[in-house]
Computed example of a mutant assay.
Amino acid sequence: MNNFFSVAGKIAVVTGGSSGIGAMIARGFVENGVKTYITSRKLEQLQHTADELSALGECIAIQSDLSTMAGVDAFADEMLKRESKIDILINNAGAVWGAPIEDFPESGWDKVMDLNVKSIFFLSKRLLPALREAGETDEPSRIVNIASVNGITHPHMNNYSYSASKAAVIQLTRHMAADLRPSNVNINGIAPGFFPSKMTKHVMEHEQKFSNNLPARRIGELADVAGTAIYLCSRASNYVCGHTVVLDGGQVANAG
């Protein structure tokens, strides 16, 4: 039973890794001995996060724009130039759009779907050779797709494309896992509730009120999401396949 939760020595890619949940996962990896590549669109913030994490271990920043196929291909090409084997891919990059249903624009729908769903599928596809090269029968490589509780229950917000995209991520996780696990690539997901991020800034202004309505009586913290990601990328979860872990302090359980 020794080292069941160890990820030391692995190579990971974390998209949307400059802030929020992505940065939390990246930090957990770096502190536990994972060579971690982070990517996002804004170079200054990305490099700042990489510099901070590099004080704890090995973290490398590569700028990308995964909202377009050209951006997905460019990032994948750069990663495959640098690494022939990739143990872990965390598909976390995402966008949100809010508007009343009567005013919801096609551009807001397409922007969210392209980044939140399309990029997950095509980046995973492009990095499959390196993931398969790293995977073994008793130690498969990992893909972890970041979904959301908004893809499971009514969000009570006007983020229609976001909630639809996250429901799609949960189904895509199941579908890809069933097809790819025989080739030593294991896929699961995480559906976070409220964690501090740019996307949840409007809720964080009322953090105490929101926390009081959660069974856990608090919002998510770094250890919660980093620990869950480490579990899903370690030997301890080898037999967990195609599932999305709800990480929400009881929000979904408490939904009426």
Rank of each mutant, 00 (worst) to 15 (best):
M1G: 15
N2C: 01
V7E: 02
V7W: 00
V7M: 07
V13N: 07
V14T: 04
V14H: 06
V14G: 06
G17Q: 09
G17W: 09
G20Y: 02
M24I: 02
N32I: 04
K35M: 05
I38V: 13
T39D: 12
S40F: 11
R41A: 12
L46P: 09
A50K: 13
E52R: 13
E52Y: 00
G57R: 08
E58V: 07
C59W: 09
C59L: 04
A61W: 02
I62L: 10
Q63P: 00
S64H: 04
L66G: 07
G71D: 07
A74K: 11
F75K: 06
F75M: 03
A76I: 07
A76P: 09
K85T: 12
I88Y: 07
V96G: 02
A99G: 05
S107V: 14
K111H: 10
M113T: 12
M113K: 00
F121L: 13
L123C: 02
R126I: 09
P129M: 02
E139Q: 09
E139Y: 04
N145F: 07
G151E: 01
T153H: 11
H154L: 05
N159H: 06
A164L: 13
V169W: 11
Q171W: 09
N188V: 07
A191E: 13
P192V: 14
P192T: 10
K198H: 12
K198Y: 03
M204Y: 10
E205G: 05
K209E: 15
S211A: 15
N212A: 15
A223T: 15
V225L: 00
V225C: 04
I230R: 15
S234W: 05
H243G: 03
N254T: 06
A255S: 14
